[in-house]
Design a protein around this nucleic acid. Structure first.
Lengths: 226, 226
DNA sequence: ACCTGAACACCGTTCAAGT
DNA sequence: ACCTGAACACCGTTCAAGT
């Protein structure tokens, strides 16, 4: 018994040892719970029951840590959506997977813009372009198609990340959209007539469905141009 | 003569008085010259030959200042591209205007994500949706079209803003794209075959033209769905 | 090899004190 | 009304010192 307890404790000690993986996991927890502003090296060290300096033994700096955390989240998404359907459906599934991941981890949205050679970006490009190549067409058209889809997805991701910064963590999207709609409606009708008209649709829409409508729009364009 | 000199000096004094406009103009100068990281309240105060606290008499905080600076840049773009061509051409002109503005002021790209009720965002939405409504179609389809175009534009803007942060201010885009292409080509062929294939196109392409190709792709989709 | 935590060089923001 | 600038409460990062 005493022996087992000691052994268990030793194993726990080993588990408790600092590592790049544990640091990234703790960072993800903090980011999910409190948003981008909550992740400080001091907060991270406190949660890991260590000193701030210890973090830097395993991770170059804070920005690399954020990028690595985003890579981790996106890698899970891409692995999860590896389905055996047709290219159109696969692209929709990838896009939705990213959308949902950013809904759950809004801070990932802003990380997707950093360094276009990070795994997070490469995984998205690779999976989208793999599916698009199945649709056929000349190389130049495919390149345009991939980047159009990618930038649309990044645009929505970045917007959702920014929106999350404006509300308390955990607030649902539709409540926020209603408040944006109210502000749109309050604008000067002479200056922003179309924006005011769009306010009603913004309030009532499901932005997840609408995101997918945008993907479909681009896919329709890809097929029209091909 | 002496009287004139005194009068001139007094006028200069008046011009030198701190104001929201002068602060925003100075902020734009600093941001353009040194990027987002160069704008600190201390640097701004030094350039305006005043104390840090004085800034806060005219501007709520640094984030509002950044947003106001972006509003200013975007307002100029929208005013400048007010042409009398057809809706398709007008949308291309608006999109290109924004692209070029962000090329000249990369920091604007990240500001476009903040608060979807800021003038910068409203002006873009208003001008794009005004042109799209000329193309006709049901309201719901128009809403999808506007947001698809907007998010694509925001995606490119955000990416260019982030890229600018990676290089010394003033570096041209094509040199940076070549370095990204080199990194793509260096990836594991088993893991990222499509990314590696795309590297050559990334190196050789003109990203301004390609941005426009994406706009055309979405416009084609809008017409196909309509 | 890995961890500690005080120290450093910065931030944005506030506010009593001035004019 | 507007400006000053020291002070405050934070940051990320470093590094001598420990184990």
């Amino acid at each position: 018994m005493a022996f087992m307890a000691r052994k268990t404790k030793r194993v726990e000690r080993r588990t408790d040892a600092l590592s790049r993986e544990r640091i990234i996991a703790a960072a993800i927890d903090i980011l999910d719970a409190g948003g981008e502003g909550a992740l400080t090296v001091r907060a991270l060290a406190a949660r890991l029951a260590t000193g701030s300096g210890a973090i830097y033994w395993h991770v170059a700096d804070k920005s690399e840590l954020l990028a690595a955390a985003a890579d981790e989240v996106i890698a899970r998404v891409i692995t999860a959506v590896a389905g055996g359907t047709g290219p159109r459906e696969a692209i929709r599934a990838i896009a939705l997977g990213i959308f949902d991941a950013i809904d759950a981890h809004p801070w990932v949205g802003s990380q997707l813009f950093r360094e276009p050679w990070r795994p997070a970006t490469l995984e998205i490009i690779e999976s989208v372009s793999g599916q698009l190549s199945a649709l056929g067409g000349p190389d130049a058209a495919q390149f345009n198609s991939v980047t159009a889809l990618l930038h649309y997805i990044l645009g929505v991701a970045g917007q959702n990340a920014a929106n999350a910064r404006l509300v308390a963590p955990g607030t649902d999207r539709s409540a926020f959209l209603a408040s944006v709609a109210a502000r749109w409606r309050a604008q000067d009708p002479a200056k922003y007539p179309f924006v005011r008209q769009m306010a009603a649709q913004l309030r009532d829409h499901d932005d997840r469905e609408q995101f997918l409508a945008g993907v479909d729009l681009i896919l329709a364009g890809i097929e029209a141009v091909r």
